[in-house]
Nucleic acid binder design. Structure first.
Lengths: 247, 247
DNA sequence: ACCTGAACACCGTTCAAGT
DNA sequence: ACCTGAACACCGTTCAAGT
């Protein structure tokens, strides 16, 4: 009963690479990575397994294509209000990724897999380019572009992966926004309580910050981290030709 | 022929949870996540599949246990020279994770999976605690502990995941250190050339930094990012009770 | 308590055959 | 060129049976 099969009797749309990727994203959203099986896909699309391989290739290639598609859409999405400084633009791009991963939790793992397997594949390239342009607009000296952009991108990816399941909802449905808020408060409360019960000998730090956890807002916290990195970028020493002249 | 079966005829060590995890790590190191199958494991350990389930549980639980074990070891490892400032200690912890993931590439994905599924599981907790203690030692005001620690941890995780395959070797074997260096130079050169051939309309930034890629050292670059975040932490505003009094 | 291994359900992929 | 679906090899997990 879990997943409703939306179109099983006769095919409504012609089969195509795009249609297959779209259906794959629906399955992934509904049931996670394990939910995307060739059989479930052929059933949903009312076709045979060979058709999938004809249009997109193996299951792995389909996963890559789904990841590329969703990330590219998140990077291309125009924000409601036009940002007027490079800092704002960076926040917009970062929140775009943050929300995309919250909406499609399977993205966190897929992103990590692509990052590991091909560190400079299309996905990473797109993210670096988006952030890098704003770093340039910030007036950072050219020799620091790579360091500054890497720091931002890596912070964004790490934070975004950890917040995948916490951030949920936000932009999707309004009706149960209250319920989502309640869920999150409950989650934070549980985490906070768990930390307070940790062995003080092993986890003195986590115990000490247990209080802060309760009253913390994921998006605000995420943006505070962005600001911290931006501050670090502002104070970068202009690079020398040779690294580490004086250590 | 690929993987040498080290002990097949008769069992040399008594079967135990620890022995199974050890063998799992060997399989993962040799052939990645796909290389860890229950059948390969039972063959290597000269046992039946039921024994695995008796001692550790499902394949997923075994993957979690392997991840926990390797990360805990990386965090507990004592550095060659004792670090004498909190900043140095942070660099030591960060490089410990950097090297662990370079040595065990499958860790990058597993870490991301655990981070997504249980954001405050034992792995994340251990990393936060290690870094958090040093943030406290740095003299950061308590209200900023969480923000500062998150920024560091998320940067470290993001950077470390992307550098998983580039960083390889380093601490393992000396004989082919030259060869590994050559491999990396080749890799960087290829990336640099690929960026120079990108469409200037779509990727102006990546084209502009293609040169920097060639002469870049992963570990130095990683540490430069750490320093950037540390600088940002130093310049954090002391927090107010209510967030965003004046926007 | 600890271990064996056949049996089961499910999976990705291929490919001869159709249109 | 595009699609079908049976067949194949392989997988994780269970469990009655052994010690």
């Amino acid at each position: 009963m879990a997943i409703r099969t939306r179109q099983s009797q006769r095919r409504r749309q012609a089969l195509s690479r795009e249609r297959i990727i779209e259906a794959a994203v629906e399955l992934l959203d509904a049931a996670g990575e394990g939910g995307l099986t060739v059989r479930a896909l052929t059933e949903r699309l009312a076709t045979g397994s060979g058709a999938i391989y004809w249009h997109v290739g193996t299951r792995g290639e389909l996963l890559d294509a789904a990841t590329d598609t969703v990330i590219a859409a998140a990077l291309a999405a125009e924000p409601a209000r036009a940002p007027d400084t490079p800092q704002d633009e960076i926040r917009v791009v970062a929140l775009g990724l943050f929300d995309a991963i919250a909406e499609h939790q399977w993205l966190a793992t897929q992103l990590a897999i692509q990052l590991t397997r091909s560190p400079w594949g299309p996905v990473t390239l797109g993210i670096f380019e988006s952030i890098g342009r704003q770093v340039r607009a910030l007036g950072v000296p050219q020799g620091n572009w790579f360091t500054a952009t890497s720091a931002l991108v890596h912070y964004i990816l790490g934070a975004t992966i950890q917040n995948a399941q916490i951030g949920e909802d936000t932009s999707v449905a309004e009706p149960d926004a209250d319920r989502a808020d309640a869920d999150r408060a409950e989650f934070l409360d549980a985490a906070s309580r768990a930390w307070q019960e940790l062995d003080p000998g092993d986890y003195p730090f986590m115990r000490a910050i247990a209080d802060q956890m309760r009253e913390h807002n994921d998006r605000e916290q995420f943006l505070a981290g962005i600001d911290l990195v931006l501050t670090g970028i502002t104070h970068l020493q202009p690079p020398t030709g040779q690294a580490h002249i004086a250590e």
